[in-house]
Structure formats: C-alpha cells, structure tokens
Design a protein around this nucleic acid. Structure first.
Lengths: 144, 144
DNA sequence: GTTAGTGCAAACGGTTTGCAACGTA
DNA sequence: TACGTTGCAAACCGTTTGCACTAAC
C-alpha cells in the first residue's frame, strides 16, 4: 500500500514549467496554452489548468487576479513587486520594488497583512514606437 | 419615430440604487441581490445584473475586480481611494486618500495613467471583537 | 396602447471534473 | 504491470441574452 502518490515527469508538465522559467512576466491561460503547443501541439486546455493548479499548490507559481486581464500566473519567489499593465500591447510587466507603506494607507485599528498594486498606462516600448495608436483605444476602465 | 428611448422608473431599479446610496462599501452581486430582496422579494439575478450594468454605463457605479472577492460594485464619484479587505468578516472597506506616487513605482519610459491598490488584513471591528475568531474565517454576517 | 423593464430559462465563457486511454516508472 | 497523467466531453459557476409577460408612461 502506497502512502504517498508519486509524481511523474511528462512532456506537458515540463513544457509548462519551462515557459515560466524562460520569462519574467505573468501569463494568462491562453498564452500558456499557445506557447505550450509550440512544443506539444496536442496540449489540452484542461491539462494546462491542472498543471498550473498543481504548480500553484506546490508554490512554484502565483495566481494573480488582474483588474483588466483576469486570471494570470507568474513564477513565485521573486520577491514582493507590483504590476504594470500596458493598454496598448496588453502585456503585464513586473515593477521592481514597492513604494507603498501599508501604515500610510491603513486607518487606526486596521491591521494590514498584505497588499497588491496594479498600475496601468503605456509601457516604454509602446510609448516610443507609435504615438498615434495611444489615442486609439477602447478601454473599459478609464483612468481614475 | 422616437429618436431617444425613455427610461422608466421601476421599484427594482430604485431599490438597487438606494442600496448604494445608503452604503459606502463595495458590494458583490449576491449581496446586492440579498439586500434588494428585502424590498422586492421576487427580484431576479438577471435584473440585478442588467441594472448594475446600466448604472456602470451611466457612471453612477464603478466596477471593481477584487483579487479575493471577484467582481464588486461601488458608488462612483467619491474620489480616488483604495480598498481594504478583511479576511475575517469578508468585507471590503474604502481607504480614504492615496499614499502611492505613481512616479515612485514606474520605471523610466513607462507612463502611468491610473492605479489600484488592494490591502488585506483584519479590520478594526474584527480585531477588537474577538481574537479567537481570527483563525475561523467562515463568517457570513459580519458587523456593520 | 406602446414599449421599456422584468422573470425565467437557455446560452455563454472561463474553469473544473469524470472517465477511458495513454505512458512513465 | 500499476497508476499518475492526458485528452475529451460534460459539468460547473458567474454573467449575458432571447423571449413572453408585466407595468410605467
């Protein structure tokens, strides 16, 4: 009788893991699926969900609920950071460091344990590449 | 031929609007539905979704995608603020003011246009009321 | 009376799950 | 061989939509 179930190494699993090891950017399921299919063409969406979930439970990945893009996943253990969403290229970048002091935003009696910051705007590539496209957008959430 | 469709005033609509006028707190669909049914017992979920959507388009409400609670709605026009999520009572509070300078978190070349901050921890009511409950995170009806 | 708004049920999109076939150990 | 993993399809959950009925104007 086995007390502990053994993990098996499959191409699908390794492929998904590698995608995140090669990239310091949060990805959505569709992006993971696309990149994964470059190596495993028959890769199934359910398999991606299952393995992502596994990696999150193992602590290898982190799940992010992004205000504009929905659920994203990123490699864990890279220290506290925030996220920048570029509305032109629809990509999310990691912002190193943290300029937010929890005590500055928390009223007396409230105990802050963690926080998340989502910045959005235009990334450096998009702002230098083509300014005309910056006005042509169809946002849901206009700037506050 | 009518050029402009006319809005009609219904009990359902008014009820939903009043819920937000009486409360400075973001609410989820289920909460809106519950509170609404106190006044309109037959209130339907689809009706709530339709009217909420309408109010968001009119600019009366704002849609929030909360990392822990999913989609929430709050009254618009109350100025820039952040949100505090209490993991004990599962409620979201508005944090007045903003202690985040976008220039402090944005690398050169990136243009920040807006940001959102979600803090989580324990609210003042929950931290003073009963410390033993802090480990028991399954509360339905928290204090107002 | 006209037609916007409602309730209901079915449709929808993202995510999870049951199951038979597959493939790793 | 044994059983963890996969692909597929169906189930699931939050949200939207089509439709007949209701009710505001």
């Amino acid at each position: 009788m086995r007390l502990k179930s053994m993990k098996r190494r499959t191409l699908q699993k390794e492929t998904i893991k590698q995608i995140f090891q090669q990239l310091d950017q949060p990805l959505g399921i569709e992006q993971i699926l696309c990149k994964g299919r470059e190596k495993v063409p028959a890769l199934n969406r359910a398999t991606v969900y299952r393995n992502i979930r596994l990696y999150v439970e193992e602590g290898l990945l982190l799940k992010i609920n992004h205000p504009a893009l929905g659920t994203l996943y990123e490699r864990a253990g890279r220290g506290h950071h925030h996220h920048f969403y570029c509305r032109i290229c629809d990509q999310v970048f990691e912002l190193p460091g943290c300029a937010l002091k929890e005590t500055n935003v928390t009223p007396k009696g409230f105990f802050a344990e963690s926080h998340e910051v989502f910045v959005s705007g235009v990334c450096s590539s998009c702002s230098t590449r083509d300014f005309s496209s910056i006005t042509n957008t169809d946002h849901e959430n206009p700037p506050a």
